[in-house]
């Protein structure tokens, strides 16, 4: 039996599936605790329900994108390990990059035909080690950090800056990505050559246009139920535009 066949054997599904199942249980426990705490402090059930609906509908499309990451890595690492990595702690943009880097260190290309048992174990360990820092920091510092953040500030009367700071941080995050799409188009293949891919920028613009339309419909036409699905629908429209733009180019 080749190593790549062993990597998709039932034992691998058992090991990786066990960890995924553990994390799924953890998610259920956190969700139930949050729901109960919300109810106990007087939050409206309808609001909590909207949070669940919107979060579920929003998550389907990115999850399908993540599934593609599993498929992309399965050729070299089998199916169960990428499935575990992208269900727990992993990140789509991280896994392939680290797997490639790790393969180089063991002297192979990231492919099923070159994979050996020791190469796999080494790559798998490196993939786990490189990304666990966020979880480690949370384990040791989350309590202190969040306590410090929630400490009342001197002269804090008259409204908190915290909420505005978080909105600003998110605007900074979004701006970094939109700026990178613009840069990718204008200078992606050399400064000011305008020969890089315009698809990410056009996709973002189309999704923004659809979001504008849905926001208008929700606010002016009183279709408030649309708000729960506006992000998912805008993304779907943006992704459809990416296909059309690519076909047209």
């Amino acid at each position: 039996m080749s190593v790549i066949s062993q990597l998709s054997a039932p034992t691998m599904y058992l090991i990786c599936g066990g960890i995924v199942a553990f994390v799924a249980v953890v998610c259920v426990v956190f969700a139930v605790r949050a729901w109960r705490a919300g109810k106990a402090i007087g939050m409206d059930t309808a609001v909590l329900r909207r949070v669940v609906t919107a979060s579920a509908s929003f998550s389907v499309l990115p999850a399908v994108g993540i599934l593609l990451g599993v498929i992309a890595l399965s050729g070299a690492l089998g199916i169960p390990w990428p499935w575990l990595r992208l269900s727990v702690i992993g990140a789509l943009h991280y896994e392939t990059q680290v797997a490639q880097g790790a393969a180089e260190q063991v002297g192979i290309h990231l492919s099923g035909s070159e994979m050996t048992a020791q190469a796999f174990a080494t790559i798998a360990l490196l993939m786990s080690l490189c990304i666990l820092w966020g979880m480690l920091l949370n384990l040791f510092l989350n309590k202190k950090y969040t306590a410090r953040l929630s400490r009342p500030k001197a002269g804090g009367a008259g409204g908190s800056f915290g909420d505005q700071a978080m909105t600003a941080m998110f605007i900074g995050l979004v701006s970094a990505y939109i700026g990178s799409y613009l840069g990718q188009w204008i200078s992606g293949n050399g400064r000011f050559t305008f020969s890089g891919s315009p698809v990410p920028l056009l996709t973002a613009l189309c999704a923004a246009a659809m979001m504008a339309l849905l926001t208008w419909a929700a606010e002016k036409r009183k279709l408030h139920w649309l708000e729960d699905f506006s992000l998912a629908l805008s993304m779907l429209f943006g992704m459809a535009c990416a296909v059309l733009v690519r076909q047209g180019i």
Binding site: V64, V174, T203, L231, A242, R246
Partner: peptide, 27 residues
């Protein structure tokens, strides 16, 4: 999922997400 026609859609999940969020926050 791996059809070449649909590939640009899945390659651009993140731009679609940030485009929609950008409108929501920028306005």
């Amino acid at each position: 999922l791996q059809s070449p026609v649909l590939q640009p859609a899945f390659d651009n999940v993140v731009p679609a997400l940030f485009g929609a969020m950008a409108y929501k926050y920028y306005r």
